[in-house]
């Protein structure tokens, strides 16, 4: 979504007031991540109207409400990991620092070892995934399992029924690192399990985030997730 900077204060206000329609609100939410000015305007608008909420007379809360929440809480330990995922991406090819060359030599050696290992492995064994991520919905119910083989293919097995409108499609994402941001693994044309291939991404790591969102048919127009999250989860190394 292209936002004219002059419109930012109005859009931020209308977003906070809940006046944007679903598509506009989703576009704003996607844009917040890369538009600091918009994010700041929304924060300001929230604070401006917040007293209308905080001055409200509190209701007595049902005694069962907390238990109902506590029962549905997924394990949150993954969250700390995603924050600390340090992408060990090789430094740029034109880095002439000594450590850069050394790292390049080491990674070249490592690459050939992995290649040799991979060759032996692939002829002696059926392929197994490097990581497996169990994807949950917001209620903490299991929705899908992603197996990422790290060789440009990932398989997505759906374990729940998804209602996908005709003009929408499900898109699978992963977050190799905060710097790279979310990367598409591919589309699920129907609400069926599928093996996705063709994306060249860094080797999947432990605790890497996987996500399925609902995007317009043909996939997200921005190359980043824009639609509602259907399920997400953190990967575990297969062992």
């Amino acid at each position: 979504m292209r936002i004219d900077p002059a419109d930012i204060p109005t859009i931020a206000d209308e977003y906070v007031l809940g006046l944007l329609d679903e598509a506009e609100a989703a576009a704003v939410e996607a844009e917040i991540e890369r538009n600091a000015e918009l994010a700041a305007a929304i924060a300001k608008a929230r604070e401006r109207f917040l007293p209308l909420d905080t001055s409200i007379e509190p209701k007595t809360v049902s005694p069962t409400l907390w238990d109902a929440i506590a029962k549905r809480l997924p394990d949150n330990t993954g969250n700390t990991s995603i924050r600390s995922v340090s992408p060990r991406l090789p430094s740029a090819g034109n880095d002439n620092g000594r450590s850069g060359w050394r790292a390049a030599a080491i990674s070249a050696m490592a690459a050939s070892l992995i290649l040799a290992g991979g060759l032996i492995w692939s002829v002696t064994r059926t392929i197994e995934p490097l990581v497996v991520a169990v994807l949950l919905n917001e209620a903490g119910e299991v929705q899908a399992v992603v197996e990422d083989f790290g060789n440009d293919t990932a398989s997505v097995r759906l374990l729940a029924d998804f209602a996908v409108p005709a003009d929408k499609t499900m898109q699978v994402w992963t977050l190799p690192s905060r710097e790279m941001g979310p990367m598409s693994l591919g589309l699920l044309e129907g609400p069926q399990s599928k093996t996705l291939s063709g994306s060249t991404l860094p080797k999947p790591q432990d605790t890497q985030l996987y996500e399925i969102t609902l995007e317009q048919a043909g996939g997200s127009p921005t190359g980043r997730p824009t639609g509602p999250i259907l399920a997400k989860g953190f990967a575990k190394l297969a062992r």
């Binding site: 700041a40 924060a43 929230r46």
Partner: peptide, 10 residues
């Protein structure tokens, strides 16, 4: 990005 309270209420 604003107060924790504002984030929670939002």
């Amino acid at each position: 990005r604003g107060s924790a309270r504002g984030w929670i209420y939002a």
